[in-house]
Design a protein around this nucleic acid. Structure first.
Lengths: 347, 347
DNA sequence: GCCGCTTATTGTAACGTTTCAATTAGCCTC
DNA sequence: GAGGCTAATTGAAACGTTACAATAAGCGGC
């Protein structure tokens, strides 16, 4: 493959001139510029990224680590991040940790040898000290998405988790429900704690008693949510509505409902956080709290780009994004079994 | 950040020795090996990928271009490819073309300057001459996934599309259907043509007449499939079953069915190619023809790795993978409206 | 017509590795 | 004890760029 030297030779100029044509075209006279350009085209010259980044001490690469690329939230996030990065001349190296801390550390090490210029991290699970050290060793700007880690001074883009849960719960209450189960992640992670808090406050605001039996920790995983829903729905005095705090768990609950032969919303109403691409394709159409995923990706990249440009020094900023409740029809008035005999069917 | 030089200095050895410790540890004596290793740890040294690939003339990077990372087929493919690549010491640069040929070309150019060692391409749309030239310019092994391009001599991993469609159609016929619509991609792309062929042959084998009015080209897109399903289902003498040939189109059809207030499988049966992660979570659970996505990713990477290792020279091989029909309950016996008055409801 | 100033162009030294040939040391054989 | 091997270690030359200082050329002012 042709090198910058070949181009220089063919165009009868110095390598520096060719380099200038590529990097700062305004520094070279129009005639040389044209001559060099045709030489480039004729040879099909493409700069050698490795050589360039060796010299420039910047790779033009950004890292994005997610827990599960199969999760629509993360694949959309990648889409948005990649697009925004391309606009600024960066390429994105996507790493899928598969929710596995060991793999995440391997990725971190790999990204370190790649000398990425910046990192967007959607941390999964708790933040081990080891990982914090690895992050620090990167010596580059880091932006956290979806989950903030306090005290490390990184920028972050998160959902207003409290409001998301508050809005969802209020909507469910507004439909007439009183026994509302919450299937949540582990309250040791901030995101889940905030969502729990939002749920509780909505209950409080509506004068509905909080019942600890109705909240389950399913660790944001589908299978655990499926199991939790099964026991919840099979138990005595079952909830009339279930609120799940991420898309994976919503799928798990859906599976449980289908398996028990229950119908939604007639037997149980459902609302979840994270919209799904197919939420309008199934019956009932799913009522969900959508995160502004693309905006979050763009915001993260913007934060990163500004750090890299040096226009945003100082301590970490946390951007809080607003959720949006999309009312469809998986949440309706509960059947009035205990209070009356009338049987509400459909709407 | 520490360089190999710093390590050498600290361990009191030459840079070459440090390099050997990293790349061929068996060439260095145990004592030096230990000394160098502790120096590496103490400094937290990580090799500089750019410098390394500049010298080695190999980047350790593989490219993967997909049309839509949001599509579960592609995100699973990435997952499999990345895992298999990591096992062999490669990192994967994922490019999302968003079904946009221009963006795909931009990505190809970017991958060229990155000097990737090999490329896995899931081409979307027709293959322009321009793109073929760009591929050739890469001067590296290329493996096509999902869609083969004849005559270019590349390795490829594809589904047995004929069989996938044949099996699905046969199953639908076996349920008692005669008016079976096919919502397919454009027959100018090989994948769609093969699927059409499989559909026709299954019809033929069962003695069911082929009706051109029942096949629609929705270009593998959700929205077009939605529209096609709408007209199909609103028309007179509507089909009793619809067969969609990819996951996006299945979602589109589902949306149409929901919107028309029809119920599946009572009013219309559905079978689609491409399994979906939530196929078991909805009612009815969706009967689908699954592609062995992970196996396809691994096979593609294996092909690539063997080319790179030089153990697989010569003309392109095409691997044909077998689909698997997963019978769930979106396809059942049709209502017998025309032949009898009995109304079959559920099972 | 010389001086200083700007603008365009160039040569050369990095950047951090790996490769390759060269050196040293140790050991066996005759 | 000289010669020939093997194994371990090393120094220096690449790899393809960009940055920087240096040179050359053009031009206006005096």
């Amino acid at each position: 493959m042709a090198t910058i030297r070949d181009v220089a030779r063919l165009a009868n100029v110095s390598v520096t001139t060719v380099s200038n044509v590529i990097n700062s075209p305004d520094k070279v006279s129009p005639e040389l510029l044209a001559r060099v350009q045709t030489a480039i085209d004729k040879l099909g010259y493409a700069p050698h990224a490795a050589a360039r980044s060796l010299r420039k001490r910047a790779s033009g690469l950004l890292g994005l680590i997610v827990g599960d690329i199969t999760n629509p939230f993360f694949s959309e996030l990648f889409e948005a991040v990649e697009l925004a990065a391309a606009e600024r001349g960066y390429s994105v190296v996507l790493c899928n940790s598969n929710e596995n801390p060991a793999r995440e550390e391997t990725h971190l090490r790999m990204l370190r040898t790649q000398r990425i210029d910046g990192l967007i991290l959607a941390p999964t699970g708790a933040v081990s000290m080891n990982r914090a050290a690895l992050l620090a060793a990167l010596e580059i700007p880091v932006v956290l998405v979806d989950r903030a880690m306090e005290g490390l001074g990184y920028d972050a883009v998160v959902l207003d988790n409290h409001r998301a849960a508050y809005d969802a719960t209020s909507h469910i209450i507004g439909c007439g429900h009183r026994r509302i189960a919450l299937i949540n992640g582990s309250p040791t992670v901030r995101t889940a704690a905030d969502r729990l808090q939002g749920y509780r406050e909505a209950l409080l605001a509506a004068g509905v008693a909080f019942d600890a039996d109705l909240v389950r920790d399913a660790g944001f995983r589908e299978q655990s949510a499926y199991e939790a829903a099964l026991t919840l729905l099979r138990g005595p005095d079952r909830p009339t509505a279930i609120f799940t705090t991420n898309n994976l768990m919503t799928i798990g609950v859906l599976r449980a409902v289908a398996e028990l032969g229950l119908s939604c919303p007639a037997d149980v109403s459902l609302v979840g956080i994270d919209d799904l691409p197919w939420a309008e394709a199934v019956s009932p159409r799913l009522t969900m709290v959508a995160q502004p995923v693309r905006a979050m990706g763009e915001a993260a990249l913007d934060l990163l780009a500004r750090r890299l440009a040096g226009s945003h020094a100082g301590p970490g900023t946390t951007l809080v994004m607003e959720p949006r409740l999309i009312v469809r029809n998986s949440c309706a008035a509960p059947a009035l079994e205990s209070k009356a005999l009338s049987h509400s069917k459909g709407r």
